[in-house]
Every structure is written in structure tokens, then in C-alpha cells.
Amino acid sequence: MLSPHEIAALMLIENAQHHHELNPADLNALLDRRLVWLEPQPQVHDRRLHLTNHGRHVLDAIAGKH
């Protein structure tokens, strides 16, 4: 089960690709649950976050789309 902070982080990631302001613990939880993935970039601080299909499904379920 996701915490409210993790759900909010997932929603932020859906709308923005950078994760600089996200709580690292929330980000790690989303990565561990495979709800997001980090796109490799030449510079570590420029990595971009993306929702996985599972992450999108979770947000759709929260929004009542499923």
C-alpha cells in the first residue's frame, strides 16, 4: 500500500520528469515497487523519471478510471 506522500510523488512524476524536489524515501519506495523508472543520462543529476505501465495503472485506479 502506498502512503499519501508516495501517491503525491507519483502524481508529480506523471506531470514532471525531474525528481529534485521529491523526498528520496518516497522516490526509493516507488522505484522498489517498480512504479517509476529512471532514464539513464550522461550526468547523474540529469536523470529523468518516468511512470511504468504499473505506475500509470495505479494512478488511473486512484482517479477512478478503472
Rank of each mutant, 00 (worst) to 15 (best):
R33N: 11
L35G: 03
M1A: 08
N23Q: 07
D32P: 03
H20S: 12
E21F: 14
H19D: 11
L51Y: 06
L12Q: 08
Q41W: 01
P42Y: 12
N23E: 03
R33S: 10
L30M: 05
L12A: 08
T52G: 09
A29T: 03
R34C: 06
E6H: 06
L38P: 00
D32W: 01
P24N: 05
L10C: 14
R47G: 04
P40A: 05
H5W: 11
P42E: 08
Q43M: 12
G55A: 01
A8G: 04
P40S: 07
E39T: 12
V44Y: 15
L12G: 02
N28H: 08
H18A: 12
N15F: 07
H45R: 15
G55F: 00
L49N: 00
L10S: 10
T52E: 05
G55Q: 03
S3P: 04
D26N: 15
N53V: 14
V44Q: 14
H57T: 14
V44W: 11
P24I: 06
H57Q: 10
Q41S: 06
A25I: 04
G64F: 03
Q17N: 08
A8L: 13
V36E: 04
P4S: 02
R34D: 14
I62Y: 05
L38D: 02
N53R: 09
A9M: 01
L59T: 02
L12V: 12
L31F: 00
T52A: 13
M11F: 08
E39Y: 04
N53I: 14
M1Q: 15
W37V: 13
A29S: 01
L38T: 12
E39I: 08
H19T: 11
P40W: 09
W37E: 09
D46I: 12
H66L: 11
A25C: 04
A61R: 07
R48Q: 09
V36C: 05
L51S: 04
Q43L: 07
A25Y: 07
P40D: 12
N23L: 06
G64V: 01
L27Q: 04
M1S: 06
R56A: 04
H19Q: 10
W37L: 08
N53P: 05
H5L: 10
R33P: 04
I7D: 11
L10D: 15
R47A: 00
M11N: 08
R47K: 05
R48N: 06
Q41T: 03
H50M: 15
S3C: 06
P4H: 03
H54R: 11
A29K: 03
H45I: 15
P24K: 07
W37Y: 15
E6Q: 13
A25S: 09
L31K: 01
I62P: 03
V44S: 10
D32C: 07
D46S: 05
L31Q: 00
V58A: 00
H19P: 10
I62E: 02
N53S: 09
L38K: 05
G64L: 04
P42D: 13
R48M: 06
A61V: 06
R47Q: 01
A25L: 06
P24F: 01
N53A: 15
